[in-house]
Design a protein around this nucleic acid. Structure first.
Length: 439
RNA sequence: GUGGCCUUAGCUCAACCGGCAGAGCAGCGGAUUGUGGUUCCGCAGGUUAUGGGUUCGACCCCCAUAGGCCACCCCA
């Protein structure tokens, strides 16, 4: 019906949601500061080849979800909006010679990602991720640090019931052998293998492992497990990652069917998952080790590990979980946004006076808003009360004596205050009130 | 990309079997002219998602498109 609306799969974050996303960013910033991860901002678009090469040509993300930008001229590069942040950060690592920095380079970013997907609740074409990467350390201790950091974020954001699923998907030494074994196994299943699955077999046998087809349950139960086919190095690495998680007290579960959709992952793969949700978007975030990615970006062989957390899904789960809890949280945030004072005037035409007094209050560090409407005093008071303002500063004939009425809207009391003392008076009352609240 | 369900005011929803599109909330204004979140009254807000079709007559039936949702594919 409206002439224009937000593109399919995108949405406007109205003040309530936008403020919440900024709160997430604040939590993320505080957290990563404490862990020593430094912020990085890379472009939201890159040469398409960065993603095609990094993520893998035959992945869903590249094959059907990449937001490509039509070239303007014949010479123009093929650009694409980033579907995930890691490839771009890896590119930046190589471009800026970060190999000369103290290793590992700990980086974090937060921002919008883009995938041309079919939208659903919790799945958007533009979505927000909190991302953390550690490049230059082969692990396994850093793997545990990263995973623990992820769980900490959920805890501090107020999400309950997040489970950590971990797996190892091997490396260049052992994964090919495993894939052969897996391929042979599925081929041997013959007619019992559903047609759709048989088709996927030729493309990526790993994908059959997490099939949701009921017919696949018994078949997968007997399938060879990657963890039984790891080379010694990968096996030891995986065991050490789990030992570190145990030592850090991070509950986790080995999930043999956990494979990830991007080609660059090696060894450690993990997902943050919340069970018991309606809807299928149960993965709140995930990541893994990518020991070959920097090389794909043109750098020297360099290990790395990281994760991306979907903030849209964090918001969704927060809404579903104790709506009371998040509601109270939202109200608490709102309370912090309430103006200390609203300046109203008996003279609806006097916008200058209201602006001047509000400006004076703000200069004193107070949250003050002028009611600039041409409404009569009663309406202005009504609006101030509805906004939850602590005080109303009422401008009237007393201005001639350099005074204003200072009305405490919570207490219902009112007194004359000299304009010159206004900031101090309001400031003191507000401070006292806050102390009272805290105690 | 595949299959299914849905779409009425800014929001949440009504409207009998196909017979004059309504309410609550939110917004704005008024209630004898300088004081409140309650109350009362009023105003505004709609081409019933869009475009076709059937019918004397369509919010209601049919088709298409768009968007949302659900299940897949896949993932955050």
């Amino acid at each position: 019906m409206p002439t224009f609306r937000a593109p399919r799969g995108t949405r406007d974050l109205l003040p309530e949601d936008a403020a919440r996303f900024l709160d997430f960013a604040r939590v993320a910033r505080d957290l990563t500061d404490r862990y020593g991860y430094r912020p990085i901002e890379t472009p939201v678009f890159e040469q398409a080849a960065v993603f095609e090469r990094g993520i893998g040509e035959v992945t869903d993300v590249v094959e059907k979800e990449l937001f490509r930008i039509a070239p303007r001229t014949d010479e123009a590069e093929a650009w694409a909006l980033r579907p995930e942040p890691t490839a771009g950060i890896a590119r930046a690592y190589v471009q800026h010679g970060m190999k000369t920095w103290p290793q590992p380079v700990r980086l974090t970013t937060i921002g919008p990602m883009f995938r041309y997907d079919r939208p659903q609740a919790g799945r958007y074409r533009q979505f927000w991720q909190f991302d953390v990467e550690a490049i230059g350390d082969p692990g396994p201790a850093i793997d545990a640090e990263i995973i623990e950091l992820g769980t900490r974020f959920y805890a501090e954001a107020g999400v309950a019931g997040v489970e950590v699923l971990v797996n190892s998907i091997g490396d260049a030494a052992c994964r090919p052998r495993y894939l052969q074994a897996l391929g042979r196994y599925y081929a041997g299943v013959g007619e019992a293998l559903p047609a759709a699955e048989r088709e996927r077999l030729g493309r990526n046998a790993l994908r059959l492992l997490d099939s949701k087809d009921p017919a696949m349950v018994p078949i997968n139960a007997a399938a060879p497990r990657i963890t039984d086919h790891l080379c010694d190095a990968c096996s030891e690495h995986f065991a050490a990652v789990r030992a570190h998680l145990e030592a850090l007290g991070v509950p986790h579960r080995v999930e043999a069917s956990l494979v990830r959709g991007l080609d660059y992952y090696t060894r450690t793969a993990f997902e943050f998952y919340v069970a018991g949700r309606s809807g299928q978007q149960q993965a709140l975030g995930g990541g893994g080790r990518y020991d070959g990615l920097i090389e794909l970006m043109g750098g020297q062989p360099t290990p790395g590990i990281g994760f991306g957390l979907g903030l849209d899904r964090v918001a969704l789960v927060l809404d579903e979980q104790g709506s009371e809890a998040s509601g109270a949280g939202a109200r608490a945030v709102d309370a912090a946004r309430r103006p200390d004072a609203v300046v109203v005037s008996a003279d609806p035409a006097d916008t200058v006076g209201r602006l001047q007094v509000a400006t004076q209050l703000r200069a004193s560090g107070l949250a003050a808003r002028a009611d600039l409407g041409a409404r009569k005093l009663g309406r202005q008071m009504e609006a101030a009360a509805r906004d939850g303002a602590h005080f109303a500063v009422i401008l009237g004939v007393e201005q001639a004596d350099g005074q204003v009425q200072l009305r405490d809207l919570k207490a219902g009391t009112q007194r004359l205050v000299a304009l010159a003392d206004l900031g101090r008076e309001v400031g003191r009352a507000v401070k006292q009130h806050r102390h009272g609240d805290a105690g």
